[in-house]
């Protein structure tokens, strides 16, 4: 079975948990201490997937780009980081409204450089918000009017809730997108 390599990016405001989502997915670990990412850090994860409608499983080497969160500082050539990405996870923190308000900016920025590439919205830090609010928040961001946004999921890097599903849904979409 040949290995296909796919670059995906995690983008969003600072301190929404992008690095923690990747650490949970790749290393199955969580650290409470906040350490801001600068520039970009690339992690790799090899997964075997069988997207619906494909005859056999596919081995995918996911190149996961953890991008510096949006801050008051000018980003280091952020468009260069996004170049060639096959998909993106746009992350906001459920407990910080300002970061959810910025989700559309991030979706539009990604779409500008990678039109037609799939995007999934992650509403992270679900463990810090009462469960009865999850459904309404998810519905709200599931209804964003972008053709490329496939899904919106409530996630928690701390508990692992929906983290594997988040990455694997995007990876499958990237494979289908590349074939289509």
């Amino acid at each position: 079975m040949s290995i296909v390599k796919k670059k995906i990016c995690l983008i969003g405001d600072f301190a929404v948990g992008k690095t923690s989502l990747i650490r949970r997915y790749v290393e199955k670990q969580f650290r409470d201490q906040y350490l801001s990412t600068v520039g970009v850090k690339i992690s790799k994860k090899l997964v075997t997937l069988q997207p619906s409608g494909t005859p056999s499983p596919v081995e995918v080497q996911m190149m996961i780009w953890d991008l510096e969160g949006r801050t008051q500082f000018e980003a280091l050539t952020s468009s260069s980081y996004l170049q060639g990405a096959m998909g993106a996870i746009v992350v906001g923190a459920m407990n910080r409204q300002a970061t959810l308000g910025g989700l559309e900016d991030h979706i539009e920025l990604f779409g500008k450089f990678n039109p037609k590439r799939p995007v999934i919205v992650a509403l992270n830090k679900a463990d810090l918000v009462p469960p009865d609010q999850h459904k309404s928040l998810r519905e709200r961001y599931n209804n964003l009017t972008y053709d490329t946004v496939l899904d919106c999921q409530c996630t928690s890097a701390k508990t692992g809730e929906n983290v594997d599903a988040l990455f694997e849904t995007l990876a499958k979409a990237c494979i289908k997108n590349a074939k289509g």
């Binding site: 600068v38 520039g39 280091l76």
Partner: peptide, 11 residues
């Protein structure tokens, strides 16, 4: 040309 700045250490 193309340039990329600040790529962090991997493995």
């Amino acid at each position: 040309s193309f340039e990329l700045h600040g790529v962090g250490k991997g493995t």
